[in-house]
Amino acid sequence: MKFGIVSFPGSNCDDDALFAATETLRQPAVKLWHKDHDLQGSDVIILPGGFSYGDYLRAGAIARFSPIMREVAAHAQRGGPVIGICNGFQIACEAGLLPGALMRNAGLQFLSMPVTIRVENTGTHWTSRCHAGQCLTMPIAHGEGRYTVDSETLEKVEGEGLVVFRYVNALGETTDAANVNGSLDNIAGVRNVAGNVVGLMPHPERALDALLGSTDGLVLFESVLAAVHA
């Protein structure tokens, strides 16, 4: 299974994602430059973290107009798996691949720390190997991660089970204290209706090695491997 990792000017987790694909998962992977027009046969697309275009205007707002995004949208439309991590989540929301938007953290601080998230939905390409309610620990590193959506869309997002992850405490409870960036309903990640596109603020690709403190990110990649091979 071939991973395609999109590099925008200002992406800084593309090498982490590449390492995850090639070293941890032992899968072929290619970096796709944002000006490319072809996914080079990639089966899975990762929109990595970083500060594409310097976060000018809004995080992710300009990256969504990169030429490669047209191909990414077509891949998503065909049911191909896509994950947006951190800045990649912001880009996916700006591009309309996922509902909602990410705003400045409620506390205004850039947050770089491990968090615990709870799996709310296992009907996606990225969480099929998780069990509902499973708690995963992985790092966050963002200044604009407060998930927001208008009330009408929120009803759909909650009603149709599009919430994939929520910030929780060590006991797996959605408390205000655990909701580090002030997201609506503690939402840390969402999916599209088809379940092939998932976005989240935490970094699963940085939680693949015990040396780095957690291997909880692995289950997301195992899920997508299973989904593509199925």
Partner: peptide, 8 residues
Amino acid sequence: RLLANPVT
């Protein structure tokens, strides 16, 4: 289309 995010 670009300058303002219709959600926020």
